[in-house]
Amino acid sequence: MTTAPPAWALTSPRLRLRHLDRGDEPFVLALLNEPGFIRHIGDRKVRSLDDATRYIEDGVQASYRKHGHGLYAVERREGGETIGLCGLLKREELDAPDVGYAFLSAYEGQGYAREAAAATLTHARDALGYRRVLAIVSPDNERSIHLLQKLGLQSQGTVRMKAHDHDVALYAIEW
């Protein structure tokens, strides 16, 4: 379970998911400072392109090396613009990887998160061999909870994560 997918291994009808790399700093800076990201996911303190470089290298790319997966840049196939992040995270506090996603506000409500998360879950099951995937979500993030339920994840109650000062809702899917 430690083989990273090729650059364009994850695709859907409208999207491509690829590794984050140098050059993605402006996108990362913009996304991580969106009000919705800060409210529902947390303030990652990425305030400059240098901060974004560290986020990519020390977080995302380190996860690729250590776990064979991580967050991927989500691009529209038509137009090629990067619109969000989606992928699998391995958190110390959880016994299985969790699916995570975030999109620029201009692209919310258009089905992109569902499409990217569905591709990620299929990849987790079919290519990486996971039999269980989790998701954590702020209890007040009704749109994300609805999306997780549409994808087949079921509530497992709440859990306290190190990065949060409050309980978060835990969801799971098993195959």
Rank of each mutant, 00 (worst) to 15 (best):
60 V>Q: 01
94 L>T: 14
82 T>M: 15
170 L>H: 08
110 Q>N: 10
137 V>A: 05
51 D>G: 13
22 R>A: 15
26 P>G: 13
67 H>K: 03
144 S>P: 03
64 Y>S: 11
52 A>R: 01
91 R>F: 10
170 L>T: 06
127 A>S: 15
104 L>R: 11
125 R>A: 13
150 K>H: 11
86 C>L: 09
163 A>G: 03
157 G>K: 07
20 L>R: 01
96 A>I: 06
84 G>V: 01
152 G>W: 01
102 A>W: 06
33 N>C: 14
173 I>A: 01
93 E>H: 12
40 H>F: 15
168 V>R: 01
42 G>R: 03
92 E>N: 12
105 S>N: 11
14 R>N: 05
6 P>I: 06
113 A>S: 04
27 F>D: 00
164 H>F: 14
71 L>P: 01
87 G>I: 07
107 Y>W: 14
8 W>D: 14
116 A>Y: 00
128 L>A: 07
143 R>L: 05
143 R>A: 09
168 V>M: 08
123 H>F: 15
108 E>I: 01
78 E>W: 11
128 L>C: 09
154 Q>P: 02
58 D>K: 12
20 L>T: 02
35 P>N: 11
116 A>R: 00
168 V>D: 02
45 K>R: 15
145 I>F: 08
82 T>S: 14
132 R>T: 08
80 G>H: 09
55 Y>D: 03
88 L>I: 03
16 R>Q: 13
138 S>F: 03
96 A>C: 04
5 P>W: 08
33 N>S: 10
3 T>D: 12
24 D>Y: 06
76 R>E: 14
33 N>V: 08
108 E>P: 02
96 A>D: 07
130 Y>K: 05
166 H>L: 05
113 A>N: 00
86 C>Y: 01
105 S>P: 13
114 R>W: 06
37 F>G: 00
126 D>G: 09
44 R>E: 15
93 E>G: 12
67 H>F: 11
170 L>A: 06
146 H>P: 02
